[in-house]
Nucleic acid binder design. Structure first.
Lengths: 197, 197, 197, 197
DNA sequence: AGCTAAACGAGACGGTACGTCCCGTCTTCAT
DNA sequence: ATGAAGACGGGACGTACCGTCTCGTTTAGCT
């Protein structure tokens, strides 16, 4: 990235190597999970010396954190539509999320990120920023639009709503319960309509 | 428990040893987390041979699972009050949960359980049953009472509501955000009143 | 020792069990050597509880020692002929020993005894008594007969001669060199004729 | 020594570590014997990781073998004098050997080598080469000189004579009998003069 | 073009922990 | 009240990785 800006002599750090490391990290997390994750295997799979990994990252958790931050673990198709109808938009987003979660690898990645977050607060911060905060902000935008458009009540921060939705979905993944269409619809009823008569 | 009921010869497995193992496991999880958890340290702290641990549990995650299942990691004060007013009851429960989560050790235990669940689906199932499902069922009872009492809408399963609440709270712990009174109140507004105007 | 005298239950089996243990010990030594020897395997092979082994023998080396003392490891055919000609008798005995040492199992047993002797001086004492001292005394008898018959010089104890012969043969086994007919003959020349011209 | 000659990448194996391992091995053998020998203790005493030991040696016996081969267990003062009188030379050598064997540590080392040889034929080969074959060849030289000088009979290979002497001495150590001056003298009588009248 | 030096692949290093095997002891059930 | 079965606390095994430290080689910037 910063390549060739310094006046120092010496070989510049290979961004190709870094990329290979991050891809291998993603694969390792998807296949074996955070706990059985091995830097040695990552280096080997990336065709890279172990020291090259440690040149970039001070520890296993920093590597995982960066892998998440740079979006190598990003679940694709996370974009929220914008039809003007907030409830439809958010329901659509949640259903897309549910569909993606039928892919075992996507679940594995999400669980690896969850485990990494539970272990390490730095990872948690980045995981939150990257995967969830982005989602939240997309939802927030939509929710705030809705609020301005008179579709939603004022008084509850969009962030809290977003965390409620994301938390519920992540909890279903964590407990290995399927994210069915019915569940998503029920969640939407709770969040939009409330449960009180 | 089963002591002296079997017709099998051989010394019976020492439940005292098992208890010591589980207590040491709980302490280890609270102090060092799931990732840095060491069976060797557990055995040593329990005053037990390593083989005795492996006689009871085939793996680290099974040990953690049983530790959770048997309630060694149970957060105390999980009981829901029953004042007749569902919203007050559940809000009270959530506030209690939030208060407990100011103790670092309680958070450590919850995060250890989360990490263990992310790694191992058996643990997830047991974690869900023990810690969360109980909570859910307490909430469910209250919610169903409320429903019968005309305080709540019909049409959304109590389980979904419970998972939404628990998911949101756990998500805050995972992302290391404080469980403030404000957050809990906002969550209650979302869940009971909904956000749609 | 006290074997099978009382009429009370359970005791009758004692000597049978002991015999089974010693046979299993012999087999274990022949198959895996002294170093990889396992009391657990012996007990299992003998169809006996581990405690039964330890009732008679305080340790692994004591078991091996007794196994040797009771002749379970005795190389068969160790008898010395008595033709009246000492040199012929002893040469015959040594050649028989050499023949027996073509059986891998017999070598294994001898090496196990050697290893056990090197490790444990109690075993060494018994090994010496049982296997070697007997041989020595047989040789001694013959040598003393020979001395009386004027076939041999006086002045060197029979024991020293016996130890020289046994030591040389054992050394060949230890260094995995074959006990050929030629070697035995050369040894006999050394011992009977000396090397000085 | 070979340092930086290989074209292979990677840090070169530390001969300092190897040396420390071998010294610790020697000490461990002298103090606790072959049977109670522990690789873990050796690594610890050498200030070395266990894997470094296993990088050099595939097994305990290979380690002991190399320890012997490289002379770490060599009994000092093994040189044979050369006075022109073969009998005096060899008698002197044997007496020196006997004196050395009054040191318990030297005996422990010899017994450890014997045990290791009994367990493992590779060790036996190396033990034989290093400790005994050298002795043999020194004796052989002297014996052959003597033969040429007309002091000795022809017809018996020097090797057989050497093995007879070494075997007898080793056998006394193995059976924990003292190597007295008398015994050595008697042995010399047997070997040089023979026992036949 | 030659020099310098950082980054590279490779892999050994001192450690920690793994999960297994066995030691010698202790306890239970069945005979 | 003996004996098989087998769990117990403990110690060591040989393996896998951790994060660090050399190695010889490659590749850049600076003379």
């Amino acid at each position: 990235m910063r390549a060739a800006v310094t006046g120092r002599p010496g070989r510049i750090r290979s961004s190709a190597a870094r990329h290979a490391i991050l891809e291998a990290t993603r694969d390792e997390l998807a296949q074996r999970g955070y706990d059985k994750f091995s830097v040695e295997r990552v280096a080997s799979a990336a065709g890279v010396g172990k020291q090259t990994v440690y040149r970039w990252y001070p520890s296993k958790s920093a590597l995982v954190a960066d892998c998440i931050l740079l979006g190598y673990l990003r679940t694709p198709g996370i974009e929220t539509p914008d039809t003007g109808d907030v409830r439809r938009d958010i329901t659509g987003w949640a259903q897309t999320f549910a569909e993606i979660s039928t892919q075992p690898e996507a679940v594995a990645i999400a669980l690896a990120g969850t485990a990494a977050s539970a272990e390490d607060s730095n990872v948690a911060a980045r995981y939150h920023e990257q995967i969830v905060a982005l989602t939240e902000s997309a939802l927030s935008d939509r929710l705030q639009q809705g609020e301005r458009a008179g579709q939603l009540k004022a008084g509850v921060p969009a962030r809290t709503v977003a965390e409620t939705i994301v938390g519920a979905l992540l909890y279903r993944l964590l407990t290995r319960q399927p994210l069915t269409t019915e569940f998503v619809e029920e969640l939407m009823v709770v969040v939009f309509d409330g449960i009180q008569s």
